[in-house]
């Protein structure tokens, strides 16, 4: 059951126990039947999704979807594999925007030189998402679309003020990260939309960011994860602050009030402490198998403080 709850909350695990009986009988976990289609263009993929509506599901890395299909907690009549669509996997910078293709694997982000020099916060996350083997396959787009409240990339895109690009039957639209997450496992993406790109404004010269995650063991989802990206103006005044929280609520959370508390102030131990306190006060984290709500809340404060400090230290190094 512990393994199951790596993916799911307690409530679901109870449901699973019922299912487990069925698995015990069959001794293996086989998904329901489905048809597999592997379109070679975005256009074809979108029209397949439109044709089959809610019966279709997108398959990216499959590292969340396939385990859930095996547990029969998710199923689809049609699986639309987007891995054969060209030009969905890249990391590049164009006109002060860093663009990441939705199909870029966690490991590719972790190995990116551009990320290392411009957005080391991305390397922090890429080295703690899941485990090294899952990172070879899982994609950033899949993780965002899956919208696990404890997922790492959600906190990151919120802290970085990213925009997410989705393509659907009506063409392309951009969704601000702050508006992307609706609820647990639920995003603004429609059933016929494909997430294609993550756009992050290139960070200013005097900026720094970090992501710290509290986890029970490697490969586990965060008890709490905090992402922070800050930029300083003259005299050490904070001009930009982005803070994203994982594991702190029903969805990835942008700590807007804590960000506001930092902007316009000189960065100091005091201001960091205050922001960390505000960040924790404004969350109502869930209790589950990983931790109690109280512990999570306390850790949001500790980790916001540490992450902000780490972001500052990084800036000093640059």
């Amino acid at each position: 059951m512990l393994l199951l709850s790596a993916f799911l909350g307690d409530e679901t695990v109870l449901v699973c126990q019922g299912f487990m009986w069925i698995f015990d009988q069959s001794n293996s976990m086989i998904p329901r039947q489905f048809q597999y289609v592997a379109p070679s263009s975005l256009k074809d993929a979108v029209s397949l999704l439109r044709e089959h509506g809610e019966d279709a599901k997108i398959l990216a890395g499959g590292q969340s979807l396939i385990p859930l299909m095996k547990l029969r907690l998710m199923s689809a009549r049609y699986l639309v594999d987007i891995n054969h669509i060209p030009k969905l996997s890249y990391i590049k910078e164009e006109k002060d925007i860093i663009k990441i293709g939705a199909l870029t694997r966690h490991a590719e982000i972790g190995a990116s030189k551009l990320m290392k020099s411009k957005l080391p916060i991305m390397l922090d996350a890429a080295s703690v998402v899941a485990d090294p083997i899952v990172r070879n396959v899982g994609t950033i787009g899949g993780a965002l679309a899956h919208a696990d409240p404890s997922g790492d990339w959600g906190a990151i895109v919120l802290a970085l003020g990213a925009e997410l690009v989705a393509v659907g039957p009506k063409g392309e639209r951009r969704i601000k990260a702050g508006e992307f997450f609706v609820d647990t496992f639920t995003t603004r993406l429609g059933p016929t939309e494909i997430l294609t790109e993550i756009r992050i404004p290139s960070p200013r010269k005097k900026s720094g960011g970090a992501y710290l995650k509290l986890e029970r063991k490697v490969g586990d989802f965060a008890i709490v994860g905090v992402a922070a990206q800050i930029a300083l103006g003259d005299g050490g005044i904070c001009v930009e602050a982005g803070i994203g929280l994982a594991g702190a609520g029903p969805k990835p959370i942008k700590a807007t009030l804590a960000e506001k508390a930092l902007i316009g102030k000189k960065m100091s131990d005091e201001s960091i402490k205050k922001a960390a306190k505000i960040s924790a006060e404004n969350t109502d984290p869930p209790s589950d198998i990983r931790s109690s709500s109280e512990y999570r809340k306390a850790m949001v404060e500790v980790f916001t403080r540490r992450t902000l400090q780490a972001a500052l230290d990084r800036m000093a190094q640059r």
Partner: peptide, 9 residues
């Protein structure tokens, strides 16, 4: 209790 909802599908 964790009030997580399960996936949409």
């Amino acid at each position: 209790m964790n009030r997580r909802k399960t996936p949409r599908s």
